[in-house]
Nucleic acid binder design. Structure first.
Lengths: 212, 212
DNA sequence: TAATGTGAAGCCTTTCACAGCA
DNA sequence: TGCTGTGAAAGGCTTCACATTA
């Protein structure tokens, strides 16, 4: 029993584990071994045990891990135990797809507001939320919205970024690859779907040794 | 001058560098120093030099790097020098957004076909491509399509995965978080937008030391 | 002088092997 | 016996300092 910092790489794997455990839980399982969870997710069993060991001893030798207990613990570590509200800015093709994406719920996220600057879109409803004018963006703190999701075009990314920070947002998920500056205490995670695709051809035939 | 394997982490950064260099090139710049590129992208200058050194000595002390030369080299390493054709399967909200996403072009990708199993969607046009029935999926090799993009719901992911592999696809970009099995020589990159978001709250206040 | 290129140090992560427990 | 938990070894990546070059 020691104090441990959970390595960032392990934190990156926790949502994976959580998803697998939720699936197993739905299927009625009560326990799972590191071996079986590894097979399900495509990890190594020792990696899983090591990762879990960073935040405690949860397993029972001979039996495995109690699924519910582990789910609670991972949620606690990722700070997902409470529902987190998010605001999406930019209801274009991608914004709409993200708004309608069903996968956020299992992690406890709720997209509670959507903004656009196009008058034609303002007032329109998507699911159970109404698209608002970006000028309403200041009032996020009162509405207990902590997370911003940026799905605006490149040109508008920096401005949106600034507005979200001014509105007191604590974390940002950005789908815009454009450079954003600002040394605030706001964590930004950027997803650039084209950039991920750009790595694919490199791996297509074989990993190669490159002449230097 | 030695043989080097380019570290995977460096490969992950190459598309970033490429984007930055393309931006600079458009702005009319001919050369850039590791310092300036670092400032633009938010990296460290020594990291950039180290990464470039894995695949050769391109810079000129006192001047920096020739942008065009570097762009060509990075494209060559990532195997992006030729146009790569991709087929998208699943024209739902997300599929439509990906189809219309303009960011693939700079990396030399062209989405050349789209498939769906919904008869209402088949035959409809999106941009300059016509949505086809998934049963046409076999003929990808003749059409020189090497890459598959999966944007189907979870339940259909495994089947789509199998079909794409049977069609001789070489690499897959999947937006479905569901587990896919198959020990083929096909590289799969998975983007799960919810999973990336799930890491955000962990970083929101402060990195913490966890009691073990 | 201004910037590159790179060995070496340091740090973080993964892997291994096995002691210990139900 | 089966499976966890973990110290230690191995491996990989980042950072640093500086020799080198235009």
């Amino acid at each position: 029993m020691k104090y441990h910092k959970i390595p960032d790489e392990a934190v990156r794997r926790l949502p994976f584990y959580l998803r697998g455990l939720l699936t197993l839980s739905e299927q009625g399982h009560k326990n799972v071994s590191s071996h079986d969870l590894a097979a399900l997710l495509g990890f190594n069993h020792w990696q899983i045990r090591k990762d879990f060991s960073y935040f405690g001893s949860f397993g029972t030798p001979g039996t495995g891990y109690n699924i519910e207990k582990l789910i609670r613990q991972i949620r606690k570590i990722l700070k997902l135990s409470i529902v987190r509200k998010a605001a999406l800015v930019g209801v274009g093709n991608l914004g709409l797809a993200v708004l309608r994406y069903p996968g956020f719920r299992i992690y406890g996220f709720e997209i509670a507001a959507a903004f656009d600057n196009n008058p034609k879109k303002i007032g329109r409803r998507v699911g159970n939320i109404t698209i608002e004018d970006v000028s309403n963006l200041q009032a996020l703190q009162q509405r207990k919205i902590e997370i911003g999701i940026i799905t605006v075009p490149c040109e508008a990314a920096q401005e949106t970024f600034n507005k979200l920070i001014a509105a007191g947002i604590k974390g940002i998920l950005s789908f815009s690859p454009c450079y954003k500056t600002g040394r605030k205490k706001v964590k930004v995670i950027t997803i650039d779907i084209a950039m991920d695709l750009a790595r694919l051809p490199y791996y297509i035939t074989t990993r190669r040794i490159t002449r230097v």
